[in-house]
Simulated scan of single mutants.
Amino acid sequence: MGVLEDKSRARTFYKYLSKVYDRVNPFIWNEEMRDEAIGLLGLEPDDDVLDVGCGTGFATEGLLEHVDQVHGLDQSEHQLERAVGKFGTDGPVEFCRGDAERLPFDDDSFDVVWSSGSIEYWPNPVVALRECRRVTRPGGQVLIVGPDYPNQTVFQKLADAIMLFYDEEEADRMFHEAGFDSWRHHIQQSRPGSPRAITTHAQVPEN
């Protein structure tokens, strides 16, 4: 387990990162990549959407270009403070502080569950993916964006020490164990040589 897959360490990390997150994030995960991933979902205005690990609301902004309302959840109070500062408390986003591994929502609550830049901090990603599946309605969609495993050995060792990086084979294992039976992976990159994102678009089985 990487250093930042510990929840208390991750919260401390984001206490400080939240101050510069919106300036740093575009170098790794930019609007073009975000919008490309959102385009996979074919969203309708009345879709119920949950943004797990919403952070400061970068993905939430993009989702709101397609739907009327988004639920945003994050474990970091500092990230949520930034997000609330953008959207307010009476706007189109309903924020909630919570844990991806214990989502505070009923079964079958959402048409779409989205999570970008969060899975790498989950100590038990399969448990969290099961939770995403649980709160998504049968036939709905789950889209997860995480960091693709580096190709070079020196970066692999660094990645393993920090947080979860994974390849398509590992993603297949996690989604299968979480109860999904249909998904596709998409590799995204902001520019040549920059870190790659692995974006997995999964369908929740019909009952």
Score class of each variant (00 low, 15 high):
residue 79 Q to Y: 06
residue 58 F to V: 06
residue 202 A to H: 06
residue 105 F to S: 02
residue 206 E to P: 07
residue 50 L to F: 04
residue 11 R to P: 00
residue 95 F to C: 00
residue 67 V to Q: 03
residue 178 A to F: 09
residue 70 V to K: 01
residue 74 D to P: 07
residue 82 R to P: 04
residue 142 V to A: 06
residue 80 L to S: 06
residue 70 V to W: 02
residue 152 Q to M: 10
residue 78 H to L: 01
residue 206 E to W: 12
residue 73 L to H: 08
residue 59 A to I: 06
residue 193 G to T: 04
residue 139 G to M: 09
residue 22 D to I: 12
residue 173 R to A: 10
residue 42 G to Q: 01
residue 177 E to R: 12
residue 148 D to F: 13
residue 64 L to R: 08
residue 175 F to W: 04
residue 1 M to F: 04
residue 166 Y to N: 08
residue 185 H to W: 02
residue 203 Q to N: 11
residue 190 S to K: 11
residue 106 D to A: 15
residue 15 K to P: 01
residue 98 G to Y: 09
residue 96 C to A: 12
residue 3 V to H: 13
residue 41 L to Y: 08
residue 201 H to C: 10
residue 69 Q to N: 09
residue 72 G to P: 15
residue 57 G to Q: 07
residue 22 D to W: 10
residue 18 S to E: 13
residue 47 D to L: 07
residue 133 R to S: 14
residue 111 D to H: 12
residue 188 Q to N: 02
residue 186 H to Q: 10
residue 74 D to K: 02
residue 138 P to C: 10
residue 124 N to D: 14
residue 45 P to S: 06
residue 195 P to Q: 11
residue 168 E to F: 05
residue 10 A to Q: 13
residue 40 L to V: 05
residue 191 R to Y: 14
residue 159 A to N: 07
residue 112 V to L: 10
residue 126 V to G: 02
residue 127 V to G: 01
residue 202 A to S: 11
residue 97 R to D: 01
residue 129 L to T: 08
residue 21 Y to V: 03
residue 29 W to A: 02
residue 72 G to Q: 07
residue 38 I to N: 02
residue 187 I to F: 08
residue 108 D to G: 03
residue 133 R to Q: 14
residue 61 E to G: 12
residue 190 S to T: 14
residue 193 G to L: 03
residue 13 F to W: 15
residue 10 A to R: 01
residue 9 R to Q: 15
residue 110 F to S: 09
residue 204 V to L: 07
residue 127 V to H: 08
residue 93 V to K: 01
residue 59 A to S: 15
residue 193 G to E: 03
residue 58 F to A: 09
residue 165 F to D: 03
residue 169 E to R: 12
residue 7 K to M: 10
residue 56 T to C: 07
residue 105 F to M: 03
residue 75 Q to N: 09
residue 47 D to F: 15
residue 177 E to C: 06
residue 33 M to N: 02
residue 194 S to E: 12
residue 50 L to I: 05
residue 158 L to Q: 14
residue 84 V to T: 08
residue 7 K to Y: 05
residue 145 V to D: 06
residue 149 Y to P: 01
residue 129 L to M: 13
residue 110 F to P: 07
residue 34 R to M: 11
residue 170 E to I: 01
residue 73 L to E: 08
residue 183 W to P: 04
residue 202 A to I: 09
residue 61 E to N: 07
residue 147 P to W: 15
